[in-house]
Design a binder for these strands. Structure first.
Lengths: 252, 252
DNA sequence: TTTCGTTATTGATCTCGATCAAAGTGACCA
DNA sequence: TGGTCACTTTGATCGAGATCAATAACGAAA
């Protein structure tokens, strides 16, 4: 990890709070200047282009990180090339495990990506000294575990159509919560994933993904402009297609 | 939760350490008597018969718990009855989330089961005061997240035969680590799951599970005595069938 | 503008696992 | 001893999604 590759972003008082959950919620929220100094010393930003691999499975990983902007995905690959996405990291999501030496999955930039990295050793020390951080991290990990379990239902039991509808609903909801838009009328956004990435997410082939998206469009569950821009005229209808009960993945 | 249903197990000095990871690793290991007293006050044991439901999805859940003996499973069900197991809890595994009101999944006793329960409020207080517990819990949650991600690869990309082989390998390994047996020669154990439970775990039907088990037996990857007792003559062969690279699910 | 390369769509066919159906096994009890 | 019930195995057939193949859309570079 050459020093020159590290991009230090201007660090005026609180301008990165929204992007960096560890700092924002565990430390910065309390505005403890000592802790801020420790953080400033041990963190750095890196950016990646869409398609770049952040870490390869099995590589030594001497940092933990959180996503500032863009989307990263965790991917597992079998020897014969079959691949399954096992995690989708959106802004504020965390990756890396204190106490672990090597990455267990490929981490890939799905879109252009900025990550906020913390060198692992000092991060571990800080975590031991700052209970807030351990609690916040536990909180985030439990959220991820819930998401993973929702995803397991999708992979194990849903039809291709339901899978696609579920994925679009997840993206729509995440997008809506980022933009703090009003109650659910029409929603519109760009799909941040290629058909191949969707297929890897859903345990399908890209052809099936394409066919099912076409089918949902024909049935006017979604509207497509170009290949990526989606409008959802009726969110409830989409949820019905997804086969989710109730709120479909929102945590209590 | 009637008082009479609560089974208080004899609590001589350290006899439950092996069964109760929270106490064992976070508190009891330090032999801090004050903390022991707090725990003794807030914990209780419950037992369930195979098939009994511990909590229903959506129910209020005012405790967290860890498995002392037996196997519990976390299960999600869609309105039309399709069900997917999303977690398999073996002795020392933890269930429940501090700060959550309602259970997001059904928790079912897959075999006869004893759980060690902690009332949630006092547990949360203790967690806030005892950093060791939060760290230990984070550790366990991260392990579960890793297991869930391994499972996602299985659900999304593996064939029926690979799924069965993977499941048997997981059970064999867990069993071996419990009994601290020597290096991997022949292994023998009872399957703790019915065919239906395996199907729910693997995202298959019970017929397919049965057929694939028969096939593995015919190919002498496994030996079957009765319907449940399995012997694995060559563990590496089983791993090859499972399609796992390297150690197939062991962490780091 | 043409050309190239990436990404997406659509069609034809095949296959693995689901579904429907029947029979086998073994524990428990009257 | 036979009957019942839960669980499992095996067979026959079907269908959703995979696979193989061709074409389309679109942006970037020349």
């Amino acid at each position: 990890m050459a020093r020159e590759q590290i991009m230090n972003v201007a660090d005026s008082k609180h301008d990165d709070c929204g992007a960096c959950p560890i700092r924002h919620r565990a430390v910065c929220a309390r505005c403890n200047e000592d802790e801020r100094d420790v953080l400033d010393d041990m963190k750095y930003y890196r950016s990646y282009e869409a398609g770049q691999t952040v870490v390869w499975s099995g590589d030594r990983m001497d940092f933990v990180a959180s996503v500032v902007s863009g989307i990263a995905s965790l991917t597992q690959t079998m020897e014969d090339g079959r691949t399954q996405m096992v995690g989708l990291l959106l802004p504020s999501d965390f990756v890396g495990r204190p106490g672990r030496e090597h990455a267990p999955y490929d981490v890939v930039a799905t879109t252009d990506l900025v990550m906020c990295c913390f060198r692992k050793k000092p991060f571990e020390v800080m975590m031991a000294e700052t209970p807030h951080i351990a609690h916040r991290l536990l909180e985030m990990t439990l959220d991820e575990l819930d998401a993973a379990r929702e995803w397991m239902l999708l992979l194990g039991r849903k039809t291709a159509r339901e899978k696609i509808a579920s994925l679009i609903a997840i993206i729509a909801r995440r997008d809506a919560s980022l933009h703090l838009s009003g109650p659910e009328g029409a929603m519109a956004f760009d799909l941040p994933l290629t058909r191949v990435a969707m297929a890897d997410y859903l345990g399908l082939t890209l052809e099936t993904v394409s066919r099912q998206i076409s089918a949902l469009r024909k049935d006017e569950i979604i509207l497509l402009e170009g290949k990526r821009h989606v409008t959802i005229p009726n969110f409830q209808k989409l949820l019905d297609e997804a086969g989710d009960d109730s709120d479909g993945g929102m945590l209590n």
